[in-house]
Design a binder for these strands. Structure first.
Lengths: 208, 208
DNA sequence: GAAAAACAGTGACAATTGTTACATTACTTT
DNA sequence: AAAGTAATGTAACAATTGTCACTGTTTTTC
């Protein structure tokens, strides 16, 4: 187990890797599983070994709003923040591609901050990068209309999956941007006419 | 100087207070001063002794978007996050009421994390509460129409100033919600008709 | 105290987004 | 291959938000 941890979290010191290996448990989840719910207490800090997790916000009426993805080598900032105070989760986390996770029990997360410099830096860096990502999300909804938000959304997706072929239905996109399917279809058609995308069934190809 | 610090930051340990007193400088700013700009490098972590600071996001066209206020006993989470990596600020911070600030130099912020348990907890708690506040802001723009956002905004203001008389012009509100003055006037009139507010010049009275 | 500036109210209209309703196309299942 | 289902296209209309133009009022400035 030592080797893969070192590979996926290269910034971890050797002692930290040993500590992780000795104390943390590995759990697997299937695509579609929800591993964190709004209002649920958080008992572990979650590190991603493999797979992909979608982190989103949910409102009372079941509306979703996409925030970001968690990928191998990353950790859930919310689970770190809440861990120290035994707080409730403010977000939803759903498995998009089957994942393997390292679950670090709550008290260790705290203890390691003092013991392992590389853990401390990893945690702080996780906070920072998520905070910045969330600020960008705020920008996109505060300052931009739906057409620009859609472009922003598609580009983020392409960045994450590392390809230009997005396997998404219009309905999925609409849910994650909290609008309706018709609006997305309409805007995508316009984008196609401008030559920005090429539309196929369950597949949007980014041309630029 | 020791006494006021202890009073305003009651969670700080005696040793931490001494360290703050010995190493940090106090600076004053006047209402209207901008103490942090998008793109500017951050050299200090900022703790508020007195006064009020508005933290907001700015887009390329000068549009503003209000995020939260900083008040006595609070610290700027962004300045903490960026400090450890010597990153650029992603936000604007403007003085609303004359402030006195404790400026903690960048390297100390980091050092104290290991030395002072109470500093560590203060920093983590600052992250957590700001992150939560930002998530609520996302909710308000992602899930709600302008009328509800306006109500949310007015209530937050009332909470912060601790009174029901909000000294705000329609234009100010419009800027902070990134919409136009006419829209705010229109919605406020409707709220007045519903008996939620009472409107006067530069003064909105919350009735509920 | 007159002029200027800031603040607020309002009607008309444009643009964007949300909703309803139904048609069409492309895959899946049997 | 026929039927069923999911995905997409699209027109028409409603609701919300943005913009323009102009009015009147209060406060500030000179």
């Amino acid at each position: 187990m030592l080797d893969p941890i070192k590979k996926i979290f290269p910034s971890f010191s050797t002692e930290l890797v040993k500590d992780v290996d000795a104390n943390a448990s590995i759990q697997s989840f299937k695509a579609g599983d929800i591993i964190m719910r709004t209002g649920q207490y958080i008992k572990n800090t979650v590190l991603v070994i493999s797979g992909k997790i979608k982190v989103y916000r949910e409102d009372e009426n079941g509306g979703e709003f996409f925030m970001y993805y968690l990928q191998p080598g990353q950790a859930c900032a919310i689970s770190m923040i809440c861990a120290t105070k035994n707080e409730k989760s403010q977000i939803m986390a759903k498995v998009v591609e089957d994942v393997e996770l390292i679950m670090v029990p709550l008290p260790l997360m705290d203890k390691w901050m003092m013991q392992h410099r590389s853990w401390y830096e990893f945690v702080i860096d996780t906070y920072r990068s998520r905070f910045e990502e969330v600020l960008e999300v705020i920008d996109s909804i505060a300052f931009r209309a739906m057409d620009e938000r859609l472009e922003f959304y598609l580009k983020r997706h392409a960045d994450v999956c590392g390809c230009k072929e997005l396997k998404l239905s219009h309905q999925e996109i609409a849910s994650e941007l909290n609008t309706s399917r018709e609006v997305i279809s309409r805007l995508l058609k316009k984008m196609e006419q401008r030559g920005i995308v090429s539309l196929h069934r369950n597949n949007i190809e980014l041309l630029k």
